[in-house]
Design a protein around this nucleic acid. Structure first.
Lengths: 351, 351
DNA sequence: ATTAAAATTGACAACGTTGTCAAACATATT
DNA sequence: AATATGTTTGACAACGTTGTCAATTTTAAT
């Protein structure tokens, strides 16, 4: 097309600076072995001509794409957080970050990733749950020998580097916190069971319950989805029990938002009548419901670290740590009260 | 590194099939002028060797990256929708889609985009508001001659293709709809004024008001941000007026969600005491608040169309239409009632 | 002053593909 | 049968960069 202006190449810079192409290449790539004086002259020629290196040519000879990929499943608050963090990271370094959805066991999805890898369009990839639950994908990645980092993997990774957080401990501590306030009936809004994190959080809850000699009652465990309607329905269900819980612990903050909405609708005050706690990733949540005490899930740090780790691997360096687990911490915002102070409520007339 | 397996090249395929590299190239690219018999033989050789073309080499000779870029500003429901649509589109065609944030007037942001363009890492880009409000960027794109499509541009684009929606008409119709129900005091939760869409929606509202001889009252126009807290605050403000509106029209559904939350908190029933309408993009909203009547903003179609349009431009075809404006339509969900049926409320004791 | 070592520079090939153009072959037309 | 037309094929040169390795210059060591 009429792209008129033909690109300036390294050859023309070399001619203007009166040196070889290789020397220009050395200057561009900050390699040693160029005398300061000549380097200066080359730099001048570069600015004068407005030279910009052609990445395709570099890719061809170096067999590198300078693109890394992050695989996500569908959309949601988890994914949004990952994406916005990843987009911020896009400013750093020389790598472009390609965001790609991956639906386990969906053939077009598989073909797409296979093509990305085999065509050498990406140098490495980060997988997020539940993408890593697809053995086909894992196998494909392993066979290709491409750099790979897991985020919160479902299964043991067999030596592949991963980044995760202390889900068990976080859930344990929050549950214990509720127990210390005197709660005995604690409803748990459980996420999908094909996430390692969900399972670990459940185990943490159970462990805390049992440590404090409270018998585990399945009635208070609701398998909801990690989203608003999931939490909404689950909370209504829990509050409709003959002996409703005095506290609800939602394993995602979207579910917590749904639960809060349901409680509002039922005219049940938080924390006056029921305490509410959440396990959360989103940062803006405090704008929405200022009061929810939460186990902070360090998702942004996880994404950041996993991308850094991946780039280290891509560049052939030996990362110091290959398995990184970030701590979680509880943020107190006052949605938890002792049940003895809570005002009782009745739910007749509502389902 | 130990990437062992050296890639299969077109040369080896040619040798196995007993033909020239060029013929293999023709087969791979579905070009004509290859006899069926030979084509078959080449195809067999390709599968036998597991040949996959090297994109870098193709990029180099064709001076094309097969990557297109979409620029977004920050995050939010608009951006989430765009991203998830774009990720779905990633399955189609031969192009990879690079999502990039762009903060107008932020120098690192500018450098990044300039590098992407000059290094020929992208073949074209789609801009979303308010990215296109940065004259530097527009100038950069124009000078580079790279393919470009606007989404909902703030300014006239001077011939550059764009895709948008009938914001004016949508707002006009919804406002008229409210007026036909008998509303005279209609609160408007206005978005940021550096979006073309926000302005057009405001104009549509005003036009409808004036057409029906209602005098425009600035009291009922609240400059809120297009998000949950913005809508929350704005709604509380409106309902605190001496003569509160009988209907609220939120120009984004996040603001509408915030407004609804505020109304719930104030124990004001929707639509019993106040009608609520929204201008919206998100599709899942009906799960959250089944009842909000909404002007559907066809964002997914817009994104889809703009990417298709961009690819047409990149490939040098002449698109039939270069300015595309999608219609909006009203979805009735029952959050609107005539004010004469509305139960009055009082707000003392609350701010 | 001489030699050894190190730093600097450049010529040239390679990377894997596609574009160009001419050669070889097949078919249709006179 | 001879010519014109069209279809199929391949040789070879790009594309713009970096890696290799040898040539040259400079510096250090004797």
């Amino acid at each position: 097309m009429m792209r008129g202006k033909l690109a300036v190449t390294i050859k023309e810079v070399a001619r203007l600076a009166g040196c070889s192409m290789k020397t220009v290449s050395r200057v561009v790539n900050d390699e040693p072995h160029v005398k300061p004086e000549l380097r200066e002259r080359v730099l001048d020629a570069i600015t004068e001509l407005g030279y910009v290196p052609n990445i395709s040519a570099r890719q061809l000879v170096q067999k590198k794409s300078y693109v890394i990929c992050i695989l996500l499943h569908s959309s949601g608050s988890f994914q949004s957080t990952v994406i916005s963090k990843v987009l911020d990271l896009g400013y750093e370094g020389n790598y472009e970050i390609l965001v790609q959805t991956y639906y386990p066991s969906f053939s077009r999805s598989r073909d797409k990733i296979a093509a990305l890898i085999q065509q050498k369009r990406i140098d490495g990839l980060v997988t997020t749950p539940p993408c890593d639950s697809d053995p086909f994908l894992i196998d494909l990645i392993k066979k290709s020998g491409i750099a790979h980092v897991h985020i919160a993997p479902l299964q043991p990774t067999g030596g592949t580097p991963y980044v995760s957080a202390e889900d068990f401990t976080g859930a344990y501590q929050m549950t214990e916190h509720l127990i210390h306030h005197g709660h005995r009936r604690i409803g748990l809004l459980m996420g999908l069971r094909n996430h390692r994190s969900s399972l670990d959080r459940l185990f943490g809850y159970k462990a805390a319950i049992e440590t404090h000699s409270i018998s585990f009652d399945v009635k208070y465990l609701v398998d909801s989805e990690n989203n608003f309607p999931g939490g909404y329905n689950a909370a209504r269900m829990l509050m409709g029990l003959p002996e409703p819980p005095t506290a609800i612990f939602a394993l995602s903050d979207e579910a917590a938002a749904g639960a809060l909405y349901a409680l509002n609708e039922l005219k049940i005050d938080v924390p006056g009548q029921v305490s509410l706690a959440a396990f959360g990733d989103i940062t803006h949540s405090n704008e929405i419901w200022p009061g929810i005490s939460v186990v902070k899930y360090p998702l942004e740090q996880i994404v950041d670290k996993s991308v850094c780790l991946l780039i280290e691997l891509v560049e052939g360096r030996q990362p110091k740590e290959r398995q990184i687990i970030f701590p979680t911490r509880i943020i107190h915002r006052g949605s938890i009260l002792s049940p003895r102070n809570q005002i009782p409520f009745n739910t007749e007339g509502k389902t």
